[in-house]
């Protein structure tokens, strides 16, 4: 919060997900569970109280067979920049105890578990349902505790958690670069677990401000869009889909509006 006066971030790490490639296999979710010590319940049938930092949502075009089309939408935390890219993301601005923070050096929205007291205001503020509450104490079966990642602290009951773009990997990469007396990271030095796990390379990750990174170009793809762009949350997760109905599902439009024709303020900003 202290750097909020500087406004623009040095780096803006973001993701571009090609929905035409995504098969909905869920490898991104599995890798995220393992990488980030995400707890799970014995019975995971109720998705409304289960924890996942990235989830794959199944969408259809609501048409009957044989015109039915399906699209799988992987949804991590959108790492919103907020209105005017000032770090005024929906969740950070509302947290009463500064338990969630916008990092102006990376654009990543963090969650400080030991600071969170579980008021859940951030969950109410997030339209993407990216934030999850620990309704139970985390319990890992048998010896699984021994397999937990030492780089990510497990969370306790009563706090909110969410995707951090595997921030610990960024820290490790920064440490390595520091030892090698480098100031900048290579694009492949810092990649989240979900991106690495994707078998069809549907996810691309990098610095949205850096022309040398693939995401810089991809975000300007003619079929690129962001979820709920009209709310001016300014997400750093972009999607690409050649299907018009998928792009339309990504936001809300009045009956006489179409995604392509709409000149929203948010669109102009990205």
């Amino acid at each position: 919060m202290k750097e909020s006066a500087t406004h623009e971030t040095a780096r803006r790490y973001g993701m571009v997900i090609d929905l035409d490639k995504c098969t909905g296999c869920g490898a991104c979710m599995v890798s995220c569970y393992a990488e980030n010590n995400v707890p799970f319940k014995k019975d995971e049938s109720n998705k409304l109280d289960s924890i996942n930092w990235i989830r794959v949502v199944k969408m259809t075009n609501q048409k009957p067979y044989p015109d039915t089309q399906i699209c799988y939408l992987p949804m991590p935390c959108m790492q919103c920049d907020g209105v005017g890219k000032h770090g005024h993301s929906p969740c950070v601005s509302v947290c009463p105890a500064v338990a969630t923070d916008y990092d102006f050096t990376t654009g990543i929205v963090s969650q400080i578990y030991t600071r969170c007291f579980g008021c859940r205001y951030c969950m109410a503020a997030c339209p993407y349902h990216a934030r999850k509450f620990n309704w139970w104490d985390p319990v890992w079966p048998a010896d699984m505790e021994k397999y937990l990642s030492p780089n990510v602290s497990p969370r306790m009951r009563g706090v909110v958690e969410k995707c951090s773009f595997c921030f610990h990997r960024y820290q490790l990469a920064r440490d390595k670069a520091y030892q090698e007396e480098r100031a900048e990271l290579e694009e492949n030095e810092y990649q989240p677990a979900c991106v690495e796990a994707c078998p069809v390379k549907a996810m691309t990750f990098g610095d949205l401000n850096n022309p040398a990174h693939a995401v810089y170009e991809l975000k300007n793809h003619k079929h690129a869009f962001r979820l709920l762009e009209r709310l001016e949350t300014n997400p750093k997760v972009y999607y690409i889909s050649s299907k018009e109905w998928v792009r339309r599902n990504g936001d809300n439009y009045l009956p006489d509006e179409a995604p392509g024709r709409l000149k929203s303020k948010a669109k102009a900003r990205h």
Binding site: C95, P96, A97, V98, A99, C116, G118, C119, N134, V159
Partner: peptide, 26 residues
């Protein structure tokens, strides 16, 4: 009763985010 970590309730005062409406409420 409503907060997940009642023993940390005092954080809202101690670590106050003055930009949050909930802080002002508290």
């Amino acid at each position: 009763i409503d907060i997940g970590q009642p023993l940390r309730g005092w954080f809202i005062f101690w670590h106050a985010n003055v930009h949050s409406m909930l802080t002002e409420v508290a």
